[in-house]
Nucleic acid binder design. Structure first.
Length: 586
RNA sequence: CGGGGCGUGGCUCAGUCUGGUAUAGAGCGCUGCCUUCGGGAGGCAGAGGUCCCCGGUUCGAAUCCGGGCGCCCCGACCA
């Protein structure tokens, strides 16, 4: 029998010693940090900044990252995805082929190598996987296939911020599914959806799943996993009655599409009113002393050579995604001053729907049609119209939902008011369809002999963001309170007198005991005063603290402190492991 | 990209406006010794700084002027 020399090596349990690792905690708040998670991650000695949007993960911080990636890997594998590793360094040509070099624009980090070849650092990996599968999958029998990677991605963010929350270099799990048909995609998508729920549950996060735009990723269906947080860059609305949730780019808004019964026939018709120099909603509103809610904002677009006037209530904002859908795929270009003057025969700032040439297509947001005594541009320099009644004074060719959702807007499902929240996007799911397989000529030989494009999906998780989101969510005035599964160590054993062999031995026994029971433990063996040890353990946020001090000297008892509840329990050495396991299980 | 702010030991900052009082300071941290030892102790001694960089003005620059770099915040942007 083959003898493994290592098998005779005595198995020694090594526990992490605080004195031998690097956890540089800070008492003071670093000047560069504003956001809670940023401050705490720096103070707890988890991360250090190198430059704008680039961070080192120190031992404790890296353990958190590793715990998160382990969870992600377990759940990806369980969902049937297989892990690969792909280059971050690409020929620029590859990104050009899919059309995304332009789409990403200056978000892509570019460089030129010594041979004067253009290269990019991968912002995400659709192009490589797609070509990989294109060139190496021979038959539809090998499908469906879902590949994933956990890798650093690079984006030259306009504005890195909030520490690890938005960085120029970040760790991401990305999975890519390849199917032969839409039904298959649905299945692959659902498998990822389920896996994501398990992942975020295990990470201890409270999350909301919101409908999202597929945007520049192309494709049809998209959902995002949000962790509610005031510092989140993303906004979404949620209906507390029926549970509908969508990010603001996507969120639909309920509302009647017909004008209200013409109640106000007394109104004789629009009157011109002089508004010299007042061009913006705000200016006109102030000048006429009328609420912006009564204004009809007229935005002009050039769509395939013709003019389109888009109408919104003065206080509402256009959602360009909705406009895009309303135009059924035609691409709107915001009109320039020259075009506007040509169409309205007035300078910019005085456009209105009344009396526009019949060649101008008018599209109105639902809310515009509810205005009963409106104000809008007169298509005449320095004049606006008062007493405008939609439906009577102008007739849009299309009335639909065009605006960006706001707090209290009616839910599209049940019409109850929705609430607006800020969130941290920790994960997203996209149905891509054939966008990339078409662009890159990636197809499979079908059963009938022809070649068909892969139906793709892609599914991302921001690993660093999970850590930051957890800190944002779980912290108190003392520091971080890590969820058990992603804590850098589940237990910190504090030996309060490292000069006492009795206490040090007891502390080591406690560590061994816990480790033998599968618990992650760090021993604070530093020659520090007790106060510092307590403060540090609380700052870094270990879920459980085991104190070996006076209580042990006097009557052989260990003290267990629970970080989240501040609960303290004295216990004998023999019951430590089982008691701690119970605590960690909750 | 617009607006604002900052750059002085490891960290937080004072000093800059009004140049020289000066061998550039404080608190925290760090090193050594003594005392202390369950919630960031006390005493004594000490180390540690190209005052972001380059140029200019001046007898003299952390301080004034010009240029550059870096960082943070607000906004715009963001698969």
């Amino acid at each position: 029998m083959y003898e493994n020399p290592l098998q005779f090596t005595k198995k020694v349990i090594e526990h992490m010693l605080w004195s031998k690792t690097l956890i540089p905690t800070l008492k003071e708040v670093p000047a560069e940090a504003e956001a809670l998670s940023h401050v705490l991650m720096l103070r707890a000695g988890l991360i250090r900044k190198l430059g704008s949007g680039t961070y080192s993960y120190l031992p404790a911080g890296y353990r958190i990252i590793n715990k998160i990636t382990s969870i992600v890997r377990e759940e990806m594998n369980r969902a049937g995805a297989v892990e690969i590793l792909m280059p971050a360094l690409w020929p620029a040509e590859l990104l050009k082929e899919s059309g995304r070099l332009e789409a990403f624009g200056s978000d892509v980090i570019r460089f030129t190598d010594r041979h004067n070849r253009k290269g990019v650092l991968a912002p995400t990996h659709e192009e490589v996987v797609t070509t990989l599968v294109r060139d190496n999958v021979d038959s539809y029998k090998q499908l469906p296939l879902t590949l994933y990677q956990v890798q650093t991605k690079f984006r030259d963010e306009v504005r890195p911020r909030f520490g690890v929350l938005r960085t120029r270099e970040f760790l991401m799990k990305d999975a890519y599914s390849f199917d032969t048909d839409l039904a298959g995609l649905e299945k692959s998508y659902q498998a990822m959806y389920d896996a994501y729920c398990r992942i975020f549950d295990r990470c201890g996060l409270d999350y909301v799943i919101v409908e999202a735009e597929s945007g520049a990723m192309g494709g049809s269906r998209s959902q995002e996993f949000m962790v509610q947080s005031d510092i989140g860059d993303d906004k979404y609305v949620r209906c507390n009655s029926c549970g509908y949730a969508a990010n603001v780019e996507k969120a639909n808004i309920a509302g009647p599409q017909e004008p209200p019964p013409a109640a106000d026939e007394a109104n004789s018709g629009p009157d011109e009113v002089a508004t010299p120099g007042a061009r913006t909603i705000e200016e006109v509103s102030r000048f006429l002393n009328a609420a912006p809610e009564r204004m009809i904002k007229t935005l002009l677009y050039e769509v395939g050579g013709r003019a389109v006037a888009v109408l919104l209530r003065g206080d509402h904002e256009l959602n360009e995604n909705k406009l895009l859908r309303a135009l059924e795929g035609e691409n709107p270009v915001a009109a320039d001053a020259g075009f506007i003057e040509k169409v309205t025969s007035a300078p910019v700032g005085f456009a209105g729907p009344v009396g526009l040439s019949g060649s101008v297509d008018i599209i109105a947001d639902k809310a515009v049609m509810q205005i009963e005594d409106g104000i809008t541009g007169a298509n005449k320099a320095d004049f606006h119209l008062r007493g405008v009644i939609p439906g009577r004074d102008f007739r849009p060719s299309k009335i639909t939902d065009l605006r960006v959702a706001r707090d209290s807007d009616p839910c599209p499902e049940c019409t109850r008011p929705m609430t607006l929240h800020h969130g941290i996007e920790v994960g997203h799911l996209f149905q891509l369809g054939t966008k990339y397989s078409d662009a890159l000529g990636a197809g499979f030989p079908a059963a009938d002999g022809g070649k068909k494009p892969y139906i793709m999906g892609c599914y991302g998780i921001g690993i660093n963001r999970i850590a930051a989101a957890a800190v944002e969510t779980f912290a108190d005035e003392k520091g971080i309170v890590w969820p058990f599964e992603i804590a850098p160590f589940q237990v910190a054993v504090l030996c309060l007198d490292t000069d006492s062999p009795e206490l040090m031995n007891a502390a080591r026994r406690a560590c061994n005991n816990l480790q033998e029971n599968g618990i992650d433990v760090i021993l604070d063996d530093r020659d520090e005063r007790p106060g510092s040890k307590f403060k540090d353990a609380e700052l870094v946020g270990f879920p459980v603290m085991v104190v070996v001090g006076k209580g042990y000297e006097k009557n052989g008892l260990l003290e267990v402190q629970v970080r989240s509840s501040a609960e303290r329990l004295d216990m004998a050495e023999e019951e430590l492991a089982s008691e701690v396991l119970k605590l960690l299980d909750t």
